[in-house]
Simulated assay, not measured.
Amino acid sequence: MSSIILMGIKHCGKSTQGKLLAKHFECPFYDTDDEVTQLTGKTPREIYTESGKEAFLEAEKQACKNLAEKIKSETMAIIATGGGICNNPAALDELHKTGKFIFLNADEKTAADRIVREISYDGIGSMKNLPAYIAKENPKNVQEVRSIFHNFYVERQKIYQNLCDIEIKLEHSSSKSENRQKILDALKEME
């Protein structure tokens, strides 16, 4: 079996499911965001904020290229991607050489709840720790965060569905192991 590349909206469970799958298949787990940080010494958010979108896309592409080279000698690897990789064709090309794209489709409410849970506030009440695409809209309250996320979610769903080899609907009410089993079942059907 080739590598499994997990994609989906931020907080859909890519890292959690990736680690579970790596344990199941007894293979290495990689996260493209971690690879970006190792390569540059900065988090994806720091690169995007400090140097802009183009600098981030280039760093992500290079990290994916390095990762593809690193796993050449592996029989299999599990890779969790950053939520925005769907807008980085060069990075996607590097990863697609290594395996299949699996779209982990989490419901909108679950993903939005996870984003809202991470919000913090500075001393003057401004929201912090928001994804860049939400922060740039300068939301004033949680309702605005959810509204911005809704539009983004709808757009991204279409992109992921067009890119993926397999789409798996993850259920919030299911356990992590039940969702992992859905992925394993879908992989078996694909073989």
Rank of each mutant, 00 (worst) to 15 (best):
A111K: 02
K109A: 13
R117E: 14
L67R: 00
K70I: 08
R45S: 15
I79P: 04
F56N: 04
K61S: 13
M76G: 10
E60S: 08
G82M: 05
K65H: 09
E94P: 07
E54Y: 02
K70Y: 02
S73W: 00
D107N: 13
K72N: 14
N88F: 03
A111P: 06
T49I: 12
I78G: 06
T98P: 03
S120W: 00
L92M: 13
T49Y: 02
G82A: 07
T98E: 07
I115S: 01
N87R: 13
D113Y: 01
R117M: 10
T98S: 14
D107L: 05
E50S: 15
T110I: 06
R45L: 13
T81D: 05
T75E: 09
E50T: 14
K70H: 08
L67W: 00
G82C: 10
R117W: 00
F56D: 05
L104W: 01
E74Q: 11
A112K: 06
F101Q: 01
A106Y: 03
D93K: 14
N87K: 14
K100L: 14
H96F: 12
T81H: 03
E69G: 11
C86I: 14
I85K: 02
A91T: 03
Q62W: 01
E74S: 15
K109G: 08
T98G: 10
Q62V: 14
E58P: 09
G82Q: 06
L104F: 02
N88T: 06
L67K: 00
E108T: 09
E58R: 10
I85P: 04
N87S: 08
D113H: 01
I47M: 05
I71P: 01
R45W: 02
S120V: 12
R114P: 04
I119N: 01
Y48K: 06
T49E: 08
K100E: 09
E58G: 13
E60C: 03
S73R: 04
E60T: 07
G99C: 06
D93W: 06
T75V: 15
E108D: 12
C86W: 00
L104H: 00
M76I: 15
R117P: 07
D93V: 14
A112Q: 09
C64K: 06
E108Y: 02
G82W: 02
I115N: 00
R114Y: 00
L104E: 01
A91E: 02
K53Y: 10
N88Q: 08
E50Q: 14
Q62C: 11
E69D: 11
Q62N: 13
A63Q: 02
L95F: 03
E118P: 05
I85M: 05
